[in-house]
Design a protein around this nucleic acid. Structure first.
Length: 569
RNA sequence: CGGGGCAUAGCGCAGCUUGGUAGCGCACCUGGUUUGGGACCAGGGGGUCGCAGGUUCGAAUCCUGUUGCCCCGACCA
């Protein structure tokens, strides 16, 4: 490709609205432009990257037995009413009406559509397992689109749905996909981890999220450096720490003016934070429940939520807290709550606390020498806290580290949720009807592109992994008005192209500095400069984007050299 | 959805407080000089100042409304 013809308008300045580095660089390097909030146009460079990612995804899906389909983006409300999600999906569903005033939506995901498809055409166990996938635009009217491609309202996603006759079959499909995902992200050249995660509103038991490791990621994860354990902090199980024991003393109420936070309480009583009991109230549907953890811990709301059937839990309003306890938050505690009919969920660590301190449910007072069970009742002891780095790995004796990740894929076991809702059954070997057992497996293709940039960049620009780079190499003739140099660059360019090395030749009548800057910004893995050394000694200057080293290779050896570099990257 | 901010040329911004008919840098076009890390000189094109009302002799500037966009939070495959 001749750069002079390439539609890749680069920008010297960073657009003001771009916050994260992937957004800034993709805009600056001429890959994307914003159309409206959370909606982007992909320019030729981005399109090439997306197609490379898609191609890798397709190859691995096909290898795993998947078959590609194309599903409607405009979906009738009827199916969504049938599955019940028309009302529960909420405002994130892009809804529209046709000229007859009938309801439709733009597909945010395709469980309804695909289940509808197979329920009419799949009727026998002989047709199972079946793996169908699609790579298409998805639509979600995000409350707050942000971070460029990372959280858009229109985005490209691969979804594969598996249909099995039973749980055992689903188990096989699930791990097949897990393996395929591992291959996909490995081939894309990304540093990633599959992590155990919360299955959220979609339901189902097991789920893994595939996280590209990057500081800018939205997900907090913990992982073990020794074994393969990794989990989203939302679900990472915690082992209770041993509490300091001692002779139980008598409960006392102490006046504690203006002492409200756990840190202040600890300071006031001259005790470590771990001797404090922290009490939080949550609104769970119509009910208010209390959750208690040690002062040095945080409550994991996901774990709390899993204890109830409610979809949403949120911190109770200060008014509610006062109404129930008679005190302001800061002076609340678990004593007497169960007697008032309030459920109290205590973290497992609470159980063995001795001579602890908690709010007295009376303004300006705390209790000290509190002991669970002697001084207050709990509804249940459960794992309720947020894990912290440095805690021990659940699988091995090592300690966990923390990291942040960008979720680029997830694998879910759906079970029979949708087949039951939409009545998708098959007849088994014994002639009995059963619901089809489903799984769904998504990869954010456009998000993967952004994640790749997020993980691979420096001050100068993007550093594309070879497998998904828009082009492999750029040839820079240092002066295009020197006919000999220009000719040499042209020949090199054509030879590279003929060898299947995707190349851009920067034939613009620009100073070399401009071309170098753009090459770094765009992030071609290999840069070939044709300059004085070519004319004088027959040497081509080679620089790899990912490192600083410049080497000179004989013109005759250059093709083999580049091939070698690309294959080993 | 709560809180905050912004909207002036393709991009980044100034002008607004104190109304007088729009400017800077980059980009773009023409000519010339340059040519290994975002060159220089000269000339040029491009904006109903987000939109709609209002105040005023006169509004980018003041007032009201409205739309879009961004950030923080809540929420989320």
């Amino acid at each position: 490709m001749y750069f002079s013809k390439l539609y890749a308008p680069t920008l010297r300045e960073t657009p003001a609205e771009a916050e994260v580095v992937s957004h800034q660089l993709l805009v600056r390097a001429g890959f994307i432009r914003k159309s409206s909030s959370g909606v982007y146009t992909y320019l030729p460079m981005a399109q090439r990257v997306l197609q490379k990612i898609s191609r890798i995804v397709r190859e691995e899906m096909d290898k795993a037995g998947g078959q590609e389909v194309a599903l409607p983006i405009i979906q009738s409300a009827d199916l969504w009413l049938e599955s019940g999600r028309w009302h529960v999906y909420g405002k994130e569903l892009f809804r529209l009406k046709d000229r007859h005033d009938r309801d439709f939506c733009l597909g945010p995901t395709h469980e309804e559509i695909i289940t509808d498809l197979i329920r009419t055409d799949v009727s026998s166990y002989r047709q199972l397992p079946l793996l169908l996938y699609q790579i298409q635009n998805k639509y979600r009217d995000e409350r707050r689109p942000r971070f460029g491609l990372m959280r858009g309202r229109e985005f490209i996603m691969k979804d594969l749905y598996s249909f099995d006759k039973d749980e055992a079959g689903l188990e096989i499909s699930y791990w097949k996909m897990h393996e395929a995902y591992t291959k996909i992200f490995t081939r894309c050249g990304l540093d990633f981890r599959p992590v155990e995660a919360d299955s959220g509103a979609i339901g189902g038991s097991t789920t893994h999220e595939f996280m590209v490791m990057a500081e800018s990621g939205e997900a907090d994860i913990v992982y073990c450096p020794e074994c393969n354990y990794a989990a989203n902090v939302e679900i990472a199980p915690c082992k209770p720490d041993d509490n300091e024991q001692g002779t139980p003393l008598t409960l006392e109420m102490i006046e504690t003016p203006q002492v409200t936070t756990a840190e202040m309480v600890a300071g006031f009583f001259d005790l470590p934070l771990k001797k404090i009991i922290k009490t939080m109230f949550y609104q769970v549907g119509e009910e208010i429940v209390a959750a208690i953890v040690r002062g040095d811990r945080s409550i994991n709301e996901i774990k709390l939520q899993r204890l109830s059937a409610a979809d949403i839990i949120e911190l109770a309003s200060p008014e509610k807290v006062k109404e129930i306890t008679g005190a302001e938050s800061g002076y609340v505690g678990p004593v007497g709550l169960v007697e008032k009919g309030i459920k109290v969920f205590a973290d497992e660590e609470i159980k063995t606390m001795v001579n602890a301190v908690c709010g007295a449910n009376k303004a300006q007072y705390h209790f000290r020498n509190v002991r669970p069970e002697r001084d207050f009742q709990v509804t249940a002891y459960v794992d309720l806290r947020l894990i912290e780095p440095g805690e021990s790995c659940p699988q091995c004796p090592s300690t966990l580290k923390s990291a942040r990740g960008i979720e680029v894929g997830q694998v879910f076991k759906l079970g029979t949720k949708y087949s039951k809702a939409l009545n998708a059954k098959y007849v088994d070997e014994n002639g009995a009807e059963n619901f089809i057992v489903m799984g769904c497996y998504g990869i954010g293709v456009s998000r993967t592109m952004a994640a790749a940039v997020e993980q691979n960049n420096d001050n100068e620009g993007i550093i594309w992994p070879v497998a998904i780079a828009p082009y492999h190499a750029v040839v820079i003739p240092v002066a295009v008005n020197d006919p000999v140099l220009k000719q040499a660059a042209e020949e090199l360019y054509h030879e590279l192209e003929q060898c299947g090395i995707e190349t851009v030749i920067d034939d613009r009548n620009e100073r070399a500095g401009v071309k170098f800057k753009d090459a770094d910004l765009i992030g071609y893995p290999v840069r070939l400069t044709v300059g004085k050394k070519m004319l004088e000694e027959g040497l081509i200057e080679v620089k790899l984007r990912k490192d600083k080293v410049i080497s000179f290779i004989k013109r005759n050896d250059i093709i083999e050299f580049i091939k070698d570099v690309l294959e080993n990257s």
